[in-house]
Amino acid sequence: MKLSRTDRSFDIPFPFLLAGLVLLTLVLFAASVVFGRAGVLIPNAGILIGAPTTPEAVILRELRLPRAILALVVGGALGMAGAALQGLLRNPLAEPGLVGVSGTAALGAVATFYSGLAAVYPLALPLGGMAGAGLAVVLLYLLAGRDAPILTLILAGVAINAMSGALTTLALNLSPNPYAAFEVFFWLLGALTDRSMDHVDLALPFITLGMGLLATTGRGLDALTLGEDVARSLGIGIGGLQARVIIGTALAVGAAVAVSGVIGFVGLVVPHLLRPAVGHAPGRLLPASALGGGALTLAADIAVRFATDGPELQLGVLTAMIGAPFFLALVLRTRREGQ
């Protein structure tokens, strides 16, 4: 008997897969620190201690290292949140950017810029992002929870994105300072250029907390494969599971967007590529997508440094250029399978 691609699960042993992803992520992290527009710089242990003395040490410590750390954790947050949302909604197209979570997080962050709160009180920036992301996830769940068809999910995402987009544009529109508006506009496109260790300090605790919360949902998301009623009959507390996914996503994506802007499609592409490798099990997809998201974002962030000679390509623009055709292909396939 001939087996088609989906007939058989051909998963790699899970520990090997994770080990491979860890290795890939470490290599890309090192490459992100070593390669840049200022040339190849090999860090030594000394640059992390004391005040940097040479220009190379300044570049490594003030620019490249925070950039690499942010690519790792922001990508990890987006990949894992995508996998968790897809598991909760049982829908492979749920992605923080597509469904409006990233956009609303950006709105929350812009609100703190705009009000001047972020300048006085830096912690307001990730808090605004998380508040926005939390609001969007709750809205999304109300609109497209409980086994909603894919169309409902996408429409809910369109509505949430349109709303947050309009309000963000309104803020830019009313901005008294055109340069500030221009800066916010570029920030919205998503990038990790010129971020400092301050950004890492602001985002890392919340992203870690959010990802930690998402990591506890694996069992519940596995059970949810069989529908909400069966999952409950297996002893899963659905209310607690929903709360952990929603709060975890809000913390991780909100804090990530607050420091990096909107980097779209990572949460769509990464879980989709890794799903067959984990035997389509939503629980195992979580750690795999966290690592995969980190790896993809590190790779994309290295690519934008060398893609053009002029000003750097925005990271969010690159991920959208990869992700949008991918999304289209997924939609077409879902439509074919639906027929």
């Binding site: 494969t225 069989l226 529908g227 009623d229 069966v230 799903r275």
Partner: peptide
């Protein structure tokens, strides 16, 4: 509990 229609959302 064996649910009606034996639902399964992912090709596990």
């Amino acid at each position: 509990y064996l649910a009606q229609g034996a639902p399964c959302h992912w090709p596990m």
